[in-house]
Design a protein around this nucleic acid. Structure first.
Lengths: 106, 106
DNA sequence: TTATCATCGTTCACCAATTGAACACCCTCC
DNA sequence: GGAGGGTGTTCAATTGGTGAACGATGATAA
């Protein structure tokens, strides 16, 4: 459940916008709230993310999910690993498409 | 469970080699025997495939899973739909890769 | 013939992953 | 105080997928 993909995506989204509820995160990643909560807590557990309780100046209260230095490093590593995987997928996909085109010709 | 992908793949494999056990099919598609059985029966139910009981000349008995005319048509339609989807995926993937490359630069 | 072995399709109890309604809590505003 | 809207957390329920086990059938050996 805690595969690279979601670890990467969560770190990415939170780095970009640490002020983001778990619900917003869930919507963005197109996964359930429960799964989001599970993955996020795992990242916190591992010291990748620090959850800061904080109050917005005017209105609502909320959390800030900030990447720790370790989290930032991890995110970089994951990005590279993720890119490699995507490149492999890309290669595979192109072969598949070529094959499908051949098939359509017939 | 009976998504386009497996319908397409099953029709393709069986068109190519109608003499193929469900176990062999399962291995080829990298899905479980149970799922293979379920999908295949659904295709039979819909009249896409006809299961002929038949005896091999020399040794074993087995089934022939032959595509019906309707099945052949369906397979063509699925191939095209599948190709379209793969092209979309391809586009998406390239964007993702580009984005990842940008990110790695930083 | 009978027994054994291999292979077939079918079944279904089991496991893992995922979901989201429900809950407790906090804050603001009336 | 109470209503309303936002939090994160929980967990019963559903879903999807698995493959061992089963009965049937034909080939093969005794």
């Amino acid at each position: 459940m805690l595969d690279d993909e979601y670890r990467y995506k969560i770190l990415k989204e939170l780095q970009q916008d640490p002020n983001m509820s778990q619900r917003a995160l869930a919507k963005r990643l197109e996964i359930s709230l429960g799964k989001t909560n599970y993955c996020l807590n795992a990242l916190i557990e591992k010291g990748m993310i620090k959850a800061d309780n904080f109050k917005n100046s005017t209105n609502k209260m909320g959390y800030l999910y900030l990447l720790t230095p370790k989290g930032i490093e991890e995110k970089i590593a994951l990005t590279q690993r993720f890119l490699q995987r995507k490149l492999k997928e890309h290669e595979t996909l192109e072969k598949e498409i070529e094959q499908l085109r051949q098939e359509v010709k017939t």
